[in-house]
Design a protein around this nucleic acid. Structure first.
Length: 306
DNA sequence: AGCGGTCAAGTTGAT
DNA sequence: ATCAACTTGACCGCT
């Protein structure tokens, strides 16, 4: 079965994951600040439960949890330990209940730490804060049962092989909670599937295939070939990404995402996969609903042709 | 309620 | 030098 996944937020459905800024948080007195952060965490747990319910009720098979689900969790100055915030243990229970709900409703949960999270950095400080962030996301992933934490290869720093070697060394030092969930995705500027697949095979890291990025940054491999190789890197349900270019393939820059998915961008060889396809489209749940309809129509066409 | 300025973090390539 | 792109514009303080 193909599973379509929603990323982080909703276009129309009134489910919000509130955050705050570090400057504002630091302006508050400590007690106020702790209360504020705890309130935000609690609201995020409630929003996550609502998101899981919405997905299950609307045929959406997975949901990507945003990196700020515990706002400012690893910020150098505003960061905190959730268990030590007022009502913290209760909030942790709320997240564990999200995990039970997701299991019951069979909604897969994933994480995608943002661009600052780098295993290949030349700077020890960047690596250190990246690991801190990964540890935090893995902790929440444990509570809610998320099985993937997906990141990019990072920069090239003038030498991709050396950069990947640094990433490989850092991999060895990651906590089991992070290591068991970590996956690597091809990006649209630096690391193509051909760059990452050998690394993923060598280090037993699942490869998240983003076909849009691959089309923006092609290599010698075809979509079919990368699909085949990517599937083999997974010991659980594979995870792929799909989007369409905002201004079309003839536009100045194919990288920005469209509101919706052009069904022509959906690889034919993905049709019958047992996999999760995260839909990176700005119209969010509306884009998934339309894509599901379009794919069903395509299927009818291909069946009637036979 | 609406609006403008602002917001933790890295790296790259286009302009 | 600045900016946009990257999974996501949202938040805060002022009017």
């Amino acid at each position: 079965m193909l599973r379509l996944g929603l990323c982080c937020k909703f276009a129309e459905e009134p489910i919000k994951f509130p955050v705050t800024t570090a400057l504002y948080a630091m302006k508050l007195k400590p007690a106020q600040r702790r209360a504020r952060l705890a309130g935000l965490c609690r609201e995020n747990a409630a929003a996550l439960a609502a998101a899981i319910n919405y997905c299950a009720a609307n045929g959406i098979g997975s949901f990507r949890v945003n990196s700020q689900v515990l706002p400012l969790k690893t910020h150098p100055r505003a960061g905190y330990d959730l268990a030590a915030l007022p009502g913290g243990p209760e909030i942790i229970k709320d997240f564990k209940n999200c995990g039970a709900l997701a299991r019951k409703l069979k909604v897969r949960l994933t994480f995608h730490p943002d661009q600052f999270i780098l295993l290949s950095s030349e700077k020890a400080g960047v690596t250190e804060s990246s690991i801190k962030e990964l540890d935090y996301q893995a902790q929440v992933a444990g509570w809610i049962g998320a099985d993937v934490i997906n990141i990019h290869g990072g920069g090239a720093y003038g030498d991709k092989a050396a950069a990947l070697a640094r990433a490989g060394a850092v991999l060895e030092k990651l906590s089991p909670a992070v290591r068991a969930r970590l996956a690597l995705e091809n990006d649209d500027r630096i690391y193509s599937p051909a760059d990452l697949l050998p690394f993923c095979r060598a280090h037993k890291v699942p490869f998240v295939y983003d076909v849009h990025h691959h089309r923006c940054l092609p290599d010698a491999l075809s979509v079919e070939e990368v699909t085949r190789q990517a599937l083999k890197t997974w010991d659980r349900e594979p995870l792929f990404h799909l989007s369409s270019p905002r201004d079309g393939w003839g536009g100045a820059d194919p990288r920005p995402h469209h509101d919706y998915i052009d069904p022509g961008d959906f690889p034919a060889c993905w049709r019958r996969l047992d996999a999760t396809i995260e839909v990176e489209a700005k119209a969010k749940e509306l884009a998934i609903a339309r894509l599901r309809k379009d794919l069903a129509a395509y299927k009818e066409i291909s069946c009637s042709e036979k």
